[in-house]
């Protein structure tokens, strides 16, 4: 190995990419309770056979669950889309390619985030019928 290089704690640069790098750590820690509790409740304890429009409507009758779902939506989607961006940057090197990549992923992120947010705010359509 030659000269011993002492491993040290990484200090990411104060650039967009440095912030994106730190973002993955902070949002990741937050997503452990947010995503794991969500998966535990919906996939394991409740199960897809108990989930329907009425179930969603009953859950979203509680404002706290709407806030929870919005936090999960925002953090999970942003963490995931930035992760995809970081993976693709390993294969796309030119500045123009990376710029295009950033814009495409930003637009997808924005559209999907808005769709989710509007649904959480709007609730189940025609919910009065249930």
């Amino acid at each position: 190995m030659g000269a011993q290089r002492q491993p040290r704690v990484v200090q990411p640069p104060r650039t967009f990419e440095g912030t994106a790098w730190k973002w993955m750590r902070y949002s990741g820690i937050l997503l452990i309770p947010l995503a794991w509790i969500h998966v535990l409740i919906k996939d394991v304890l409740v199960g897809v056979h108990q989930i329907d429009l009425t179930y969603v409507q009953r859950t979203w009758a509680f404002t706290l669950w709407r806030i929870y779902d919005f936090l999960l939506l925002a953090f999970a989607l942003s963490h995931g889309m930035n992760g995809l961006r970081q993976v693709l940057m390993d294969y796309i090197h030119s500045p123009s390619g990376r710029s295009r990549l950033n814009w495409i992923l930003f637009i997808i992120w924005l559209i999907v985030l808005l769709m989710g947010a509007v649904a959480i705010l709007g609730g189940v359509k025609g919910a009065e019928a249930f």
Binding site: V56, L77, G80, V112, G116, V118, A119, V124, K125
Partner: peptide, 16 residues
Amino acid sequence: LLFLLIHIIDTSFVYF
């Protein structure tokens, strides 16, 4: 992430 994208869109259908 692949499932998340599909899942957000299909869940948003409760409204749309």
